[in-house]
């Protein structure tokens, strides 16, 4: 539709949107997170949902206790290797469309415990992460910023056509392999379809 005509109509109080925009507008403003905290970052996540920071302004205050009703997994805290299979399983049990925010240095890379033998060096080794937030811990504002970033991402997702979002595509997986406890490490150590180690050039 012609942009000029569209803005002309908007001035008259007539809003023209595509079905896609309407659909994305609706779901980007009702993202329900999974009530799921792993370590200290979870406290900041809780603070973000409380009165001072008030995540409900973005339609996201409904923290669901069951993955069946959640759209967003906020991985808030240190993912130990003991916990990683559970995180992936919970992610698998969430219905599509689902999103992941990796909150804090621990969730994105292992953070201060990166050298620890029992800490997973980033949850993006197993599940696709939409927004990474650095910080230890990130302030609630940072989480809110991540949230708005996610909303923009949802708003831009295509519903039809070849480049449509992955949950509209029946061939794209909605479940990811759950790692097992191996002798020394999780097996496999990463999901190569989701994550490849960065090549370090010295």
């Amino acid at each position: 539709m012609d942009e000029g005509l569209k803005s002309e109509l908007t001035k008259q109080g007539i809003y023209v949107v595509k079905l896609e925009q309407l659909y994305n507008w609706g779901r980007s403003n009702s993202v329900w997170p999974l009530g799921f905290g792993l370590a200290c970052c979870a406290i900041e996540m809780i603070a973000a949902s409380m009165a001072r920071f008030d995540l409900s302004r973005f339609g996201a205050e409904v923290f669901r206790p069951s993955p069946r009703q959640a759209d967003l997994m906020i991985v808030a805290g240190t993912v130990t290797k003991k916990m990683a299979p559970q995180v992936v399983r919970l992610y698998n049990q969430m219905p599509e469309p689902k999103y992941v925010i990796a909150m804090g240095a621990c969730a994105i890379s292992g953070g201060p415990f990166k050298q620890g033998y029992n800490v997973l060096k980033g949850i993006d080794r197993y599940i696709p992460v939409d927004v990474h937030i650095p910080g230890c811990p990130p302030r609630p504002e940072a989480l809110i910023h991540a949230f708005m970033t996610l909303q923009r991402k949802i708003d831009a997702q295509k519903v039809f056509g070849p480049d449509r979002a992955h949950h509209f595509d029946a061939d794209k997986p909605s479940e990811f392999p759950i790692p097992l406890y191996g002798e020394h490490d999780l097996v496999p150590a990463k999901n190569p379809n989701v994550w490849e180690p960065a090549v370090v050039v010295r």
Partner: peptide, 20 residues
């Protein structure tokens, strides 16, 4: 017509805080 259902073994299993 638009958003296909994607059931799976893990997804359909009993929900128990991430544990099997």
């Amino acid at each position: 017509f638009v958003s296909p259902q994607k059931p799976g073994n893990v997804k359909n299993s009993t929900y128990e805080c991430g544990l099997e």
